[in-house]
């Protein structure tokens, strides 16, 4: 029986890229179910559209770059990017929003840098930021959860809205702000957070519906930790970083924003902590570096949320820390065995 490799080792572990990606997708399932429960089935349509376009774009790009299709299309990385982007986008996002985003992610943020493993920036976050800046209206138009529970949206209407832009059911309004958005704008109008929290868009500790989604994302994250798909350094560092700065700020100036708990389960915190910041290609690789990276993402997220121009800072925080990764990696090299103290 011919041996595969010229050089030892001739044993191989079971860790594979495809397996990692599949487990990641599995970890997202509970959260996706929660999203469907609170925001309707439109996220499934967006997801399907994103996945199909992502795979098509990847196939075309691979052909253009003279690379073999099979290993790269089956590694699952394009699917993961598409799914993460679909979760981050608002429900009922028009089809062209999704397509533009995912195409930009796959073509510009991934393949033009060299494909799998070569991109310095997280493709899903690059796409999200592009869409946020270019199409602010569509990106900040979220379905209010309260309305939905009274007038549930079925799949065909969702389909129609996404592709046609028109709704046939009896929903009065389809525009609304996210909890983070509401908190930020209301505070800008000099309201007190405790009062803001009474609004129907908020639930028990965070945004209505959002808190459950974040919770299920955290459960998925713990599953990934258990399966050793990701290591604990980045999520823990990010959550601790975020909690610390929000706790300190809240103690000093509680009128600035919501409670630390609010920040932990609102917006993209859990998605960012367990699924986005942990993307191996764009995060730091040394152990100490991962902690610095995670803490940086947490701090920047909070700073942008409270003092920056956007309601949620996860995407920007991740991209900024991606830029700093080579520097972080250089200064957090471990001490090699036998290294003599100079």
């Amino acid at each position: 029986m011919p041996l595969s490799r010229l050089s030892s080792p001739f044993l191989a572990g079971t860790n594979r890229v495809t397996l990692q990606m599949l487990q990641l997708l599995a970890a997202l399932i509970p959260a996706i179910i929660a999203i469907v429960y609170f925001f309707g089935p439109s996220v499934l349509i967006t997801m399907t559209l994103a996945v199909v376009v992502a795979l098509l774009a990847e196939a075309i790009l691979l052909r253009l770059r003279n690379r073999p299709l099979k290993p790269f299309l089956t590694d699952g990385s394009a699917v993961v990017t598409a799914v993460l982007l679909a979760i981050a986008l608002p429900p009922l996002a028009p089809w062209w929003l999704t397509v533009t985003g995912i195409l930009f992610a796959i073509i510009f943020a991934k393949h033009l840098y060299g494909g799998l493993g070569y991109n310095p920036f997280n493709p899903a976050m690059v796409a999200y930021v592009l869409l946020l800046i270019s199409f602010p209206l569509e990106m900040t138009t979220w379905l209010p959860v309260a309305n939905l529970s009274e007038h549930p949206l079925d799949i065909s209407s969702a389909f129609q809205f996404i592709f046609n832009g028109q709704l046939t059911s009896s929903i009065d309004t389809v525009s609304g702000a996210t909890p983070l958005d509401a908190m930020k704008t209301q505070i800008g109008l000099h309201q007190i957070p405790a009062y803001i929290f009474q609004q129907p868009v908020f639930g028990l500790w965070g945004g209505k519906g959002w808190e459950w989604i974040n919770l299920w994302l955290a459960v998925g994250g713990v599953f990934l930790l258990y399966r050793r798909v990701i290591s604990w350094h980045i999520p823990v560092a990010m959550l601790i970083g975020l909690s610390t700065i929000s706790l300190v700020t809240w103690l000093i100036a509680p009128e600035l924003t919501g409670s630390p708990l609010f920040h932990l389960i609102s917006g993209g915190t859990m998605l960012g902590a367990f699924f986005i910041a942990t993307d191996p290609v764009t995060a730091s690789t040394t152990v100490k570096g991962k902690i610095v990276f995670g803490a940086g993402v947490g701090l920047l997220t909070y700073i942008i949320r409270v003092w920056g121009g956007y309601p949620d800072g996860v995407a920007f925080a991740v991209l900024i820390m991606n830029m700093l990764v080579p520097l972080i990696d250089y200064y957090t090299q471990p001490k090699v065995y036998g290294a003599v103290k100079r």
């Binding site: 011919p2 041996l3 595969s4 490799r5 080792p9 001739f10 044993l11 191989a12 860790n15 890229v17 990692q20 073999p68 290993p71 790269f72 590694d75 990385s77 060299g114 494909g115 799998l116 493993g117 070569y118 290591s231 191996p280 290609v281 764009t282 995060a283 730091s284 690789t285 040394t286 152990v287 991962k290 471990p334 001490k335 090699v336 065995y337």
Partner: peptide
């Protein structure tokens, strides 16, 4: 459980190798 003859994928910078290295 020998290593199979497959073409390697590009490095995904996961850092597992650094975690496994006994010489740091």
């Amino acid at each position: 459980d020998g290593a199979k003859a497959s073409t390697p994928l590009p490095c995904i910078r996961c850092g597992e190798c650094a975690t496994a290295c006994p010489v740091s």
